[in-house]
Amino acid sequence: MRIATSSLDLRRPATLESALQALRDDARTPIAGATDLYVTLNFGTLEARRFLDLSRLAELRGITERGDTLVIGALASFTALQRSPLVVKRLPMLVEAARLVGGVQIQNRATLGGNIANASPAGDSLPVLAAVDAAIVLRSVDGERRVPMTEFYTGYRASVMRPDELITAVEVPRVEGHQWFRKVGTRAALAISKVVVAGVRDGPRAARFAIGSVAPTVVRARKAEGVLAKGGKIEEAVRALQAEITPIDDLRSTAEYRTAVAGNLLRRFWAETA
């Protein structure tokens, strides 16, 4: 490990209240599954040195229903998501996404809240949450607020979350219609997404479609959705989608490829959910 362990500091609160107080008192980076954290510690690229371990906060682990709303605790692991009968029934595309996050060892540790907080534009669960209009529940000592997933990110690895707030849960309203998920990774497993999409087909003309790895943040394809809602042709929707994403060339893929594949996947989604 390139960063000296002795330079690090960890607090492990036993209750949510003490965790929130600790965040208010001094700047700390919350950690849970630590699967992203240790990659950057090992490579020596992380600046943070003071951490707050959330793993003892059992109350953030649960997956429940509250009326029509599916409530997923921020600490639910990707393995827990796959095993949850509620998630399997109500949000099967999140199960699909969870199966494709790293290998089993990562799925056993990595959490949904961590995937959101880490704010990578390639986060596999993010298009799912954006497509179903999930809300992120944020808590601080001052109280709780809900932010729609589609308004959560403000830019590359930036969000509306304040340093003294924690993600405690994700709330998913009832999803009607056909759910569709597709991850295009650098290989079949242990892959980082080059393009990742999630869609909901609510009716003949109604679709919700979100896409990751093609912009600084996950993109909810409002323009493409609008074209389809007005009864426009799929090719028109594809052009609209390709205009509302801003993919780049990077280590893993090219802008040209991402643009073409984004369009192909919208076509496929539309055809398969017809």
Binding site: V39, F43, G103, T186, R187, A188, A189, L190, A191, I192, L251, R252
Partner: peptide, 14 residues
């Protein structure tokens, strides 16, 4: 791309 995440050798599923 000097990480195993970004230099991709075949996994069991490839």
């Amino acid at each position: 791309n000097a990480q195993l995440t970004n230099y991709t050798i075949p996994t069991t599923l490839d």
